[in-house]
């Protein structure tokens, strides 16, 4: 379990994180999303024990993380910008990690060699961006970590590699109950991978929920009515967004699907469509609700 309790972090005068608490259950894949500069990377670095928080507590397996060798030897963090020693090949890195991580699995390293098809004797820094990412995953998964923390992990990988890496992560989660925390801007990608989602904005956590709950709680409704639109409709509901497109009305509403259908049916709509929202849409409307929204700028 990865737990952060009321974390705050300042860099000089600016607050990067304010009172953030998150909870990643064992064996879960947790997706951390957020606006640019929301503090995702800072949070991940604190959880991985790279930065120390100013306030609050970070626990992995109920132990403090910072400078805790036991926890760190079970945790792998793949940062946004990768770091390898200069002149090192994948093999050299493997030998280095083997000495540091007690759970290094040589057998796995050999099996994964086939999955990634990289030349282990090539200098990593001479590899392309995508290949360097592959090397990072190859090494990370050979360590067989209990906790895997990934910052924008699939950036720069081709579609086949993405699928392969996702599959490898899922296998480890299913078989060894590895706990995974992923930050990404690619919400489509998180949608099939994660079971829990946290949304960060300006250093605060604004939503933390199971993905399925998040999705079943919010709906997109398109309806058209005979004559004028009934004025009283959805007065008692939490309407996040409302728009007229010709004679069709679009609503984004929070609430139970059955209740919404019941209410609309009273007004005998000519057209009624209820769609679940994609994670991307949820993100956009949640952000809109706190004043960070899409405004098309006309130049």
């Amino acid at each position: 379990m990865i737990e952060a309790k009321n974390i705050s972090k300042m860099f000089d005068d600016s607050a990067a994180l304010t009172d953030v608490s998150i909870n990643v259950k064992k064996g879960s894949i947790y997706g951390l999303v957020g606006s640019n500069g929301a503090g995702k990377t800072t949070l991940l670095k604190i959880l991985a024990g790279v930065y120390r928080q100013d306030q609050g507590e970070v626990l992995i397996d109920n132990q403090k993380v910072f400078e805790n060798i036991e926890i760190k030897s079970k945790t792998v963090f793949i940062p946004d910008s990768l770091y390898f020693f200069s002149q090192y090949t994948v093999k050299d890195m493997a030998i280095f990690y083997q000495r540091i991580y007690a759970n290094w699995n040589e057998e796995r390293y050999q099996i994964l060699k086939n999955a990634f098809q990289l030349d282990e004797h090539k200098k990593i820094q001479q590899m392309s961006k995508g290949m360097q990412r592959q090397a990072a995953f190859w090494l990370a998964l050979s360590i067989t970590p209990d906790f895997l923390i990934l910052d924008e992990p699939l950036d720069g990988l081709d579609p086949i590699m993405r699928q392969k890496v996702r599959n490898l992560i899922i296998q480890d989660t299913a078989e060894r109950e590895m706990t995974v925390l992923i930050s990404s801007h690619n919400l489509r990608e998180l949608e099939d991978l994660c079971d829990n989602i946290g949304i960060l904005h300006q250093g605060r956590l604004i939503v933390e929920k199971e993905l399925d709950d998040l999705k079943s709680d919010i709906h997109k409704i398109q309806a058209a009515f005979q004559g004028d639109q009934p004025k009283k409709i959805f007065q008692n509901k939490n309407v996040l967004y409302h728009e007229k497109r010709g004679s069709v009305r679009l609503f984004i509403i929070r609430g139970k699907k059955e209740e919404i259908i019941q209410e609309v049916s009273q007004y005998q709509p000519l057209v009624l469509d209820i769609l679940p929202l994609t994670l991307e849409e949820i993100f956009i409307y949640e952000m809109g609700g706190i004043g960070y929204e899409i405004k098309n700028i006309v130049i």
Partner: peptide, 14 residues
Amino acid sequence: VRVLSTQLTINPNT
């Protein structure tokens, strides 16, 4: 759960 999640590349918790 383990087999199906690997086959479909779907989160085992799902």
